[in-house]
Design a protein around this nucleic acid. Sequence first.
DNA 1: ACTATTATATACCGTTCGGTATAGAGGCGT
DNA 2: ACGCCTCTATACCGAACGGTATATAATAGT
Lengths: 192, 192
Amino acid sequence: MDKREQILHIALELFYSRGYDAVGVQEIAEKSGVSKPTLYYYFKSKYGLLEQLLKEGCTRFVEGLEQAANFTGDLRGTLWACARVFADFAEQAPRFYHLLFSMFHFPHESAPYQAVRPIVRRQQRAVEQIFEAASGQLGNMHGRQKQFSLGFAGLISYFIEMKFEESKSGEICISDEEIYSLVHQFMHGIYS
Amino acid sequence: MDKREQILHIALELFYSRGYDAVGVQEIAEKSGVSKPTLYYYFKSKYGLLEQLLKEGCTRFVEGLEQAANFTGDLRGTLWACARVFADFAEQAPRFYHLLFSMFHFPHESAPYQAVRPIVRRQQRAVEQIFEAASGQLGNMHGRQKQFSLGFAGLISYFIEMKFEESKSGEICISDEEIYSLVHQFMHGIYS
DNA sequence: ACTATTATATACCGTTCGGTATAGAGGCGT
DNA sequence: ACGCCTCTATACCGAACGGTATATAATAGT
């Protein structure tokens, strides 16, 4: 692994476990086996390192989500596909997933939130788009697209969070059935 | 306002807007109009200040939630009462609410999360208790209490977050009808 | 009046923070 | 052999960090 990758890897590990602000550049460099100027050579600042980390870790996820959110008439299927993208992401890159979603909730003026803001936006727009496209079919959701999209995203991410808390290894596995059940719950409530 | 209260007030404002780690004790003291040793006189450390802030701000909320979560046979009514407690809290202390819920998502090893952990626990237990009590009535939710409780909490907090993002003033108002609709959505899905 | 306790400030501690000036090593084309 | 570009380290910067030793007002009990 080259040094640049190594730095990103260690930074993820540290930001994940203690948070961006609580981790010093010094420590990242030392644990990566490089000196500080090397880190500053690749990423021009601590913030730049965070940005790059997010950018390189999210590309596939966000693109996958946008593709899955392409509504073609089947709401259940579309929601299922989106939930699957979330779940795959959380399975394949659990630390990264956790870091990302914790940053979603940071104070809006903080540096970490500034860095995730574009990703939050893209993710939210993708999910909203589903319900906007579907509102043509389902009159009763008119004007409630935003409520539904946030509700859906909230349901998914809380479910994944629950899986993390259950897991001892830090790794999780989410079956297709679980996702189906979750989407079903969202669409038809807890009684069915 | 006495100095102790003033410090807590300013600390809330600063932690809310930039996060615990990014705010220095110096700044809190200066903006509160006191010197650092005064701050350390009332709260023995920066972390102690955070703990005290959370404790004093949460007591009423958590107690209210535990009371509302007392299941007496009416699931819809119980969920409604709980959601109302969340909403009241968010209305009455928006900054505090936001700070608290952002800390729920911090890295588990970080100092801020250590401080909110007991509150998270109490809150989760209260909501779980509802579904455990209700599972006697509703066979189909057996074994899924945790999923439901996290799903419910997720739905509520995402809804409130949405209200915050819509609001320009930072203050929000959540009507009884909105809460009813939210609980209904949770129980019967988005189609009804 | 004397003493003890509470509440406050000045001035300082060592450490760590994010970031950089400078220089050297290694390959690479000419 | 020379200059150029990429990569890396030593050693340092001023500022800010969390926290404290010490002194002093003010208040209250006796």
